[in-house]
Nucleic acid binder design. Structure first.
Length: 275
DNA sequence: TTATGTTCCTGCATGC
DNA sequence: TGCATGCAGGAACATA
């Protein structure tokens, strides 16, 4: 599932193919990937055709392509979105939007489960994602300020980590990994965690995502790949996520899986106690 | 205002 | 073999 490291891998890979290039033709194969485009697919096509890309930015799991009129194409990969570059090979089975560039290369947005999508925004950075907080890899990210906000919430620590308005870029995988490293139970109330422990947790979140980025992201299957269609290697480094029944790397206790917020949480029942 | 629940969506695994 | 069901989960939106 694409979280911050995976989106950053895509952003970096895309930059070499997209920046400085002009869209000469846009094909909409499935308008559901333009669900958030206010004027619909016709508006998307007419406004993007002929525009040149001058930069690619990212905040959390959102990426946006800055155009030469300072408008932006906002891209979110959702659960299964991919942005691939294609120089003539047959298009991906789940290709939804195809942008042909003046270089002859195509940029393909593919998405199996249709939770992701693209839309145009008039401003840079996009006003539509103004509610998204800075991510831990942003130089302006303020650990102390975030910790204060989290400790004033009447929710669990994992719910805080997944709240993109508090801290962006973290999804289910890296939340579980950061909590495992910090020895914190996912349901522990944020208000009952000390400032020092919270600061430590932020450090682990930053570390685990940096390490994942260095290894090209986390891939469990073909749902996450870079722009060349290649998988990342961080899945083999995971200590908690997806390891139900396997021994904890610290104490050997079997990792457990629990249902939380309509998704799975993986944790060590010995290292990560609720109280 | 804040916290929680629902919905969107497809492909794979599983059970009958 | 074929069908039904459960599951995966990010985030906007609805509801309490």
């Amino acid at each position: 599932m694409p979280e911050l490291p995976e989106v950053e891998v895509v952003r970096r890979g895309l930059a070499t193919h997209l920046v400085g290039r002009t869209f000469v033709r846009i094909s909409v194969l499935d308008a559901r990937s333009l669900r958030r485009q206010v004027g619909g697919s016709d508006d998307f096509v007419s406004r993007l055709t002929g525009r040149r890309v001058v930069d690619i930015k990212r905040r959390g799991k959102y990426m946006w392509w800055v155009l030469d009129d300072d408008s932006t194409v906002v891209v979110h990969l959702g659960m299964s979105g991919q942005v691939l570059v294609n120089d003539g090979a047959p298009h991906h089975r789940h290709a939804r939007i195809i942008g042909e560039l003046d270089s002859g290369t195509s940029v393909v947005f593919a998405d199996q489960r249709l939770f992701g999508g693209l839309f145009l925004d008039d401003s840079n950075p996009p006003s539509a994602i103004s509610h998204i907080a800075l991510d831990p890899l942003d130089p302006l990210f303020d650990d102390s300020a975030l910790v204060e906000r989290m400790r004033n919430k009447d929710v669990s620590v994992k719910r805080c980590l997944l709240d993109q308005a508090l801290i962006s870029g973290i999804g289910n995988i890296y939340a579980d990994e950061a909590l495992w490293r910090a020895r914190l139970h996912f349901e522990k109330p944020a208000a009952r965690i000390s400032r020092a422990k919270m600061i430590e947790l932020m450090g682990h979140a930053r570390d685990v995502m940096t390490e994942a980025l260095d290894q090209g992201g986390t891939s469990f299957d073909a749902l996450y790949v870079n722009v060349e269609g290649e998988s990342g290697y961080f899945a083999r480094e995971l200590n908690a996520y997806g390891r139900e029944g396997q021994p904890c790397g610290r104490c050997g206790t079997a990792i457990r899986r629990a249902s939380f917020m309509n998704r799975s949480s993986f944790f060590c029942p010995r290292c990560q106690r609720k109280s």
